[in-house]
Design a protein around this nucleic acid. Structure first.
Length: 278
DNA sequence: CGCCAGGCTTCTA
DNA sequence: TAGAAGCATGGC
């Protein structure tokens, strides 16, 4: 891989180990917009990015090299070798088929606070609407970043009331967001601490927040703390476990259950119908 | 219009 | 301790 500065931004050469469209739109993150078949824009931390996938290269429009190294290299977890991991997952026939069809879906290293809020919003909700809620949340309470807005900080949210937040149309989840912000601000939930805790303790800590159960906590651990051995079980995964893995999950996913989960999730969501099968 | 959505909390037996 | 109800909203 090589990072080349050009007049429009950066070229990342020889990095083809990502299905960009699926990685950005597989339900792990909610702030990326697809502009064309191969172009995406989104906000991470205080940076707005426009990314184009061009053959084996990634183009970052308007980005500088130090920004790439300090933010995007980490966000896309580029140093991790997915080739080896996926090769192991492919011992399972279903995963093998999914990986052949979808290519490399990478688990992004998102910010814990944004991930926590996003998955509080996700409860009993659909992805299209989760995106809408988060967009309104950022527009109303974030800071201007390029043509968009940053994710609202816990400090800002902790001072808001249920009335203030009505405009984002998140229904019964609004008090949960306020509770999360307050527990983060007063230190009752400490991300630096959670980072170091064993999974059980980390999950327990997140579940002190009202509106955070096991599934939401596990999504935060997987997508916000890169705990790749965590396996969040939602209704899609529940279904696939019952029908495809009635005797238990395959051994080959050990250590990377979270990555396997993403393939199962996408497979279940796109290749099966929720209702009647004739 | 009715079904369903990357669940959780609270109530009930 | 397990299971159901209620929850707020809108995409499809």
């Amino acid at each position: 891989m090589e990072i080349i500065k050009t007049d429009f931004g950066l070229r990342i050469t020889d990095f083809d180990d990502i299905n960009l469209a699926l990685t950005l739109d597989c339900g792990q993150c909610f702030r990326w917009r697809q502009l064309t078949e191969n172009a995406f824009s989104g906000v991470v931390q205080k940076k707005e990015a426009r990314i184009i996938k061009d053959n084996g290269e990634l183009l970052f429009l308007g980005s500088a090299k130090d920004e790439f190294l300090s933010l995007w290299y980490d966000y896309f977890d580029i140093k991790r070798d997915y080739g080896v991991i996926l090769q192991n997952l492919k011992e399972d026939p279903l995963l093998s088929q999914a990986i052949d069809n979808y290519g490399t879906i990478r688990i992004l290293r998102q910010e814990p606070w944004e991930t926590l809020c996003s998955f509080i919003f996700s409860s009993c909700n659909n992805i299209a609407r989760i995106k809408g809620i988060i967009e309104r949340f950022c527009t109303a309470f974030g800071e201007g970043v390029g043509n968009s807005y940053s994710f609202p900080s816990p400090e800002v949210v902790a001072k808001l009331t249920v009335n203030d937040l009505e405009c984002i149309r998140a229904g019964y989840r609004i008090p949960y967001i306020i509770d999360a912000a307050q527990k983060v601000v007063d230190g009752e939930v400490d991300f630096e601490c959670i980072k170091e805790l064993p999974i059980e303790k980390a999950r327990e800590s997140l579940m002190k927040i009202c509106g955070v159960g096991k599934k939401v906590a596990d999504c935060v651990l997987l997508f916000g703390f890169n705990k790749l051995d965590v396996f969040p079980v939602d209704r899609h995964i529940e279904r696939i476990c019952k029908t495809m893995y009635p005797t238990g999950l395959p051994e080959c996913i050990k250590g990377y259950e979270g990555i396997a989960q993403q393939y199962m999730f996408h497979w279940q969501r796109t290749t099966t119908k929720p209702k009647k099968e004739a």
